[in-house]
Amino acid sequence: MITVHGIPNCDSVKKARAALGEHRFRDFKKEPPTAGELERWADAVGWEALLNRRGTTFRGLAESDKAGIDRAKALALMLAHPSLIKRPVVEDGSGGVTVGLPQKP
């Protein structure tokens, strides 16, 4: 079964949910991802792809939090602030993970 992870009022999440048909939805606000899940997602897509640097949550971080970001720091920030995770995160049920919506050519 496909699982869509995200925030229900996010436009990208809404588009993904509409396009995917039957799926399970997990709201990051009600059920934040675990450290193990973030590790697995980062292994699958790379921590750089997983970290949303364009959102208001990232812009609102202290400069010291934004400076020198590496994998460990990014995962710790995403664990503390799930809104920093690029959305949607989609798991296909067989171990495949994608992040965000595909870009139009």
Rank of each mutant, 00 (worst) to 15 (best):
D27T: 00
L20T: 02
E91G: 09
K104S: 09
F25A: 04
G100E: 06
A67E: 15
L20H: 08
E22N: 09
D11W: 05
A72T: 14
G36E: 10
H81Q: 13
A16E: 09
P82W: 02
L51S: 04
V99W: 06
S64H: 12
M1T: 13
C10L: 03
M1G: 14
G96S: 11
V4A: 09
G100H: 09
F28Q: 07
D92L: 08
A76R: 10
G100S: 07
H81F: 13
L77C: 13
R59F: 10
G96C: 02
T57A: 12
A49E: 12
D27M: 00
G95P: 12
T98R: 14
R59C: 09
C10N: 15
R54E: 13
P33E: 02
G93E: 12
P8L: 08
E63L: 11
M78R: 07
E22A: 14
I85D: 02
R40K: 12
R59H: 13
I7T: 10
G21A: 05
S12W: 04
R26K: 10
I7C: 02
A35Q: 05
V90E: 11
K14R: 15
P102H: 08
W41Q: 06
D43S: 06
L75K: 00
R40L: 10
G55N: 14
L38W: 00
R54M: 11
T57V: 15
E37N: 00
L101R: 11
S64G: 11
H23D: 10
K14Y: 08
N9I: 10
R71I: 01
V99C: 07
V13A: 04
V45M: 12
I2S: 02
R53Q: 07
T57N: 04
S94R: 15
A49F: 02
W47H: 02
E37M: 01
I2T: 14
L77Y: 12
Q103D: 14
A19C: 02
T34N: 04
K66Q: 15
R59W: 05
V99D: 02
D43I: 00
A44T: 03
S12R: 06
F58P: 11
I69P: 11
D70G: 15
A72E: 14
A19Y: 03
H81R: 15
T3C: 10
A44K: 05
D70A: 10
K86F: 12
L84A: 04
R54K: 15
L61V: 13
R71V: 00
L79K: 01
L77K: 07
D65Q: 15
S83R: 12
K104W: 13
D92A: 07
L20G: 07
F58E: 09
A74L: 05
L77S: 08
A74T: 03
A74F: 03
P33H: 01
H5P: 00
K29V: 08
W41D: 01
P102G: 04
P33D: 01
W47F: 08
V97C: 06
R87Q: 08
D27G: 02
K86D: 08
P82F: 00
A80V: 07
G36F: 01
A44H: 02
I2N: 04
L101S: 05
V4S: 06
